[in-house]
Design a protein around this nucleic acid. Sequence first.
DNA 1: TGATTGTTCTTCGTATACAGTTCCGTCAGG
DNA 2: CCTGACGGAACTGTATACGAAGAACAATCA
Lengths: 223, 223
Amino acid sequence: MDTDPGKIGAQHLPLRDQVLDALRKGIISGDYPPGERLTEDRLAEDFGVSRNPVREALRVAEAEGFVVILPRRGAVVASPSSATIDDIFAVRERLEPLAARLAAERAAPGDVTTLRALVERARLATEQQDLRRVAELNSALHLQILEISGNPWLASIAKALYLHVQWVFRMTAKERAPHSADEHVKLVDAIEAGDGDLAEMVALSHLGAASVAAHENTESRLP
Amino acid sequence: MDTDPGKIGAQHLPLRDQVLDALRKGIISGDYPPGERLTEDRLAEDFGVSRNPVREALRVAEAEGFVVILPRRGAVVASPSSATIDDIFAVRERLEPLAARLAAERAAPGDVTTLRALVERARLATEQQDLRRVAELNSALHLQILEISGNPWLASIAKALYLHVQWVFRMTAKERAPHSADEHVKLVDAIEAGDGDLAEMVALSHLGAASVAAHENTESRLP
DNA sequence: TGATTGTTCTTCGTATACAGTTCCGTCAGG
DNA sequence: CCTGACGGAACTGTATACGAAGAACAATCA
């Protein structure tokens, strides 16, 4: 049907996965705003695929909390409220410090190098006022720490939560304020030193600051 | 096609959800042992539905970690290792104490009544040596506390983890040893008293004991 | 005006077809 | 007897079509 390499059907990844990626991206970026109706036909057309892969992607997106499926009514983009934000941060404050601790206890030298590189690139981007890039690099740093923790459950859960927070940030602020690079440096230092206790503490206070910032950004703008 | 109320097609729940439930149950109960190939046709026949609902259920089951989908090869039941168990407990030890704290802080009197009833029924079942029932009621208690926490993210994540632990228990021990009813009483007491700190502490030590028990059961029997 | 009835849209499930892979058994050759 | 190529079977991945049922909305009628 559509072998046009311009769309998303060109590689050897299952279409449903590509659709899921594109859907997530579309939701997080705001292309599909909260409350938007997502009919299967419409998505199938948007992505240039048939309805089947779309349906499968929608089920997973529902499980991940990005869409809500109303029986016989179809899917709509979820509408995160500030209560959701509190809920998410409550969980992140438990998980990410654990990830930091595990990362500190398990990091190989190569891992630390990767982290250092990310921090350095973020510093450069900050100097150049490239806020978008800073946000990207900070995300990469957090996700990398989750990977290094070596606990796939922890990593995948925390990643999903992190994506949701980013989503809300995008909705409320044009671009996330680049949060303190100092804290990131401290965190990587603690990981390099292999000091689990310290890493956990730093991560917790970092999360605390992020939580406050999220609240300030979202409090007055969400339902 | 199949409106036979004997199978699973009778209510007004989407078939895919019923299939997902049945699939999860089949995996946890050991009807579909780890490593078992789950071809779409076979599942469709087992449940008396067509391939589509099966596929959608499989995608969610994959996201939940119950099956692994190999590209172009199909789905197989996941094979939890003892490393997985460690990983899961590491996360549970962070989340369930939080749930206990929140439950203590937010429980309505009706909630406490429900919990008390569950504990009491578990006590009766223990007296009657009905271990299967004890296990069921203990599960219900834990899941109820998660609900009471009022944090849907926390609840759904912890629930998935809890189901996995049960799964492994079923694989290794015929029936889970009914873990200390005393601890459950203490936990409910703390929730009733609204003492978040205490509830969190009790939950943590409860988890610790469960973790040790899990290790004893699984250590020598899993890959 | 207010209730009822159609109409339409959309999901949900089924059935079917087909291409591309992967697997597996067979058979020829060493 | 072992090895390796070949060919068919099995299965996924994808597309498409169709019928049924539910929900929303507009039109009709009392």
